[in-house]
Design a protein around this nucleic acid. Structure first.
Length: 480
RNA sequence: GGCGAGGUAGCCAAGUGGUAAGGCCGGGCUCUGCAAAAGCUCUAUCGCGGGUUCGAUUCCCGCCCUCGCCUCCA
């Protein structure tokens, strides 16, 4: 598999350094509120990445952290009158629930920052010994950016002018630092931290944000591992700082590959609460859309391109046309898969692990190639529809149909798309009165009593049932 | 101000030095008593102006416009 690497700025082949398992780290969520759909663009694409690797025959080891201590978690836990743990556990569970709904595989390991404070303290001590960190008067510890030669390589900071406070945010610890670009490894205890502080050789306080990832990567993946991933916003300063911390300690290159995901835009702009375009999975589900539909939308653009999530239609109404379209597209695939499945007489469910044994993807090989080439999900999706167009299911033998079905299943497995269930046995759940009415209408139709037939059809529609005539008979579907 | 991404049909979005995938919507056709469903099908000279080239949407230069980031936001 080939993937763009932020460090070298080129598409590179992915290789497992130990020759057996591809070991990678993803920066996880800060659990202080519901994750929004932009967050999930990142987590879903990382999941597609992992699924593709595994289906290509490369086992993975996926570590994703939870940030459960920082300014926001502490602030909001205090405001909610809860302990930090109660507060972050709640939002962690919510996050997991969303991930499950979106069909993301669980990381193999999900360490949290609070559980690794000793590891972080040990790392700070090592950095101080090696001359990369200093303690300020208030008991905080900062990383001395000027002490690390490679600083700025990832974000090309060396080629640009660092403008202090350009974002408008100037923290109050500004004058404790030797240089504006130095960042906190340890933050001394403040009054509004409440009970959320830990003791350290430098006094009470808590770890800085960047440090947790360095410490946990080191603990679980070692000094060097295969790939590190996160949203583009993390390139600077977060990942730049992680590199400075980790490499200053170990003397080794931290990760062979840096995989960054571009942000989701909503109606052409950044998502924000004040703009009224801040969406969570729960909200969209409440609006009547499925997690699979959201997932489809999130993978419909290449991960290095900004993706414009259309929430409002041309009239400015919040009708989520993108999700509605995704629903249609998924239905189309689901129906096709259903036909192939029947034609191929596949009667057992095929799980993700079973897909790893599939070697012949039939007409869907091109779609998988798209994924292997820099994780081109929109191309893969396009190839799926193109392949479908070229297949005439009823002309296939059972073996051929089964092969195509398995090929399509591999692609859906790689994309993590759970297809909607194709309704075929709805009749069983139809209330007796409705079924009678439908039968009467069918009879009227056979008798060419159009007036009566239409009247009954309208009546059924009022009762919430839709008639779909076929060659042999008719189907009843609940209207939604 | 700096850095980065981008402008492809009504919308979303791939891709390529030799006249452009796919999805949604919409139109047409088939089927049908009509409709729905289903199936088939149609819709773009790729922001603007130069240049290189036999040939550019694809390379180079300039311009216009959009978006993101610039210390804790995926």
């Amino acid at each position: 598999m080939r993937l763009f690497d932020t460090m070298s700025r080129e598409v590179k082949d992915l290789q497992s350094s130990d020759g057996k398992t591809f070991r990678f780290y993803c920066c996880g969520p800060t659990v202080y509120g519901p994750a929004h759909i932009g967050n999930f663009r990142t987590f879903v694409l990382q999941d597609v990445f992992r699924r593709t690797l595994e289906l290509s025959g490369m086992p993975t080891y996926h570590v994703r952290n939870l940030t459960d201590v920082d300014d926001k978690t502490i602030r909001d836990a205090e405001a909610a009158g809860k302990t930090l743990k109660e507060f972050t556990d709640f939002w962690r569970d919510r996050f997991h629930d969303d991930c499950n709904q979106l069909n993301n595989l669980e990381p193999h390991l999900e360490p949290s920052a609070v559980e690794h404070i000793p590891h972080q303290i040990a790392m700070i001590e090592e950095l101080m010994e090696k001359g990369h960190a200093y303690r300020s008067d208030d008991g905080s510890v900062y990383y001395k950016v000027s002490s690390f030669e490679g600083y700025g390589r990832l974000s090309r900071l060396d080629q640009r002018e660092l403008r202090a406070g350009a974002s408008g945010a100037v923290s109050d610890d500004e004058y404790e630092k030797d240089s504006v670009s130095d960042f906190a490894l340890w933050k001394s205890r403040r009054e509004d931290d409440g009970e959320n502080y830990w003791s350290s050789p430098w006094g009470e306080g808590r770890p800085g944000w960047h440090l947790e990832c360095s410490a946990m990567c080191r603990e679980y993946l070692g000094d060097s591992f295969d790939l590190h991933s996160g949203g583009v916003d993390l390139v600077f300063p977060h990942h730049e700082n992680e590199i400075a911390q980790s490499e200053a300690c170990s003397g080794h290159s931290m990760a062979d590959h840096w995989f960054h995901l571009t942000h989701l835009l909503v109606d052409g702009g950044k998502m924000s609460k004040s703009a009224g375009n801040f969406y969570t999975l729960t909200q969209l589900v409440e609006a009547g859309f499925s997690p699979a539909e959201l997932r489809y939308v999130l993978i419909s653009a290449h991960y290095r391109q900004p993706l414009n999530f259309v929430a409002k239609d041309k009239d400015g109404k919040e009708s989520f046309p993108a999700l509605a379209g995704a629903g249609q597209a998924l239905q189309k695939i689901a129906k096709f898969a259903h036909v192939l499945k029947q034609q191929g007489k596949v009667d057992t469910p095929v799980g993700f692990d079973a897909l790893k044994d599939v070697t012949d993807l039939g007409s869907f090989a091109a779609a998988f190639d798209g994924l292997l080439d820099d994780l081109n999900t929109p191309d893969a999706l396009g190839q799926v529809f193109s392949a479908m167009k070229g297949i005439k299911p009823d002309e296939l033998s059972e073996v051929e149909a089964r092969r195509e079905f398995m090929g399509l299943s591999v692609i859906m497995g790689a994309l993590g798309l759970k297809l909607p269930v194709v309704e075929e046995k709805v009749k069983a759940e139809v209330p007796a009165g409705i079924a009678e009415m439908a039968q009467a209408r069918w009879q009227a139709k056979q008798d060419k009593d159009w007036g009566e037939a239409d009247r009954l059809r309208d009546e059924l529609a009022d009762a919430g049932w839709e008639i779909k005539d076929t060659k042999e008979g008719y189907e009843l579907c609940p209207k939604n």
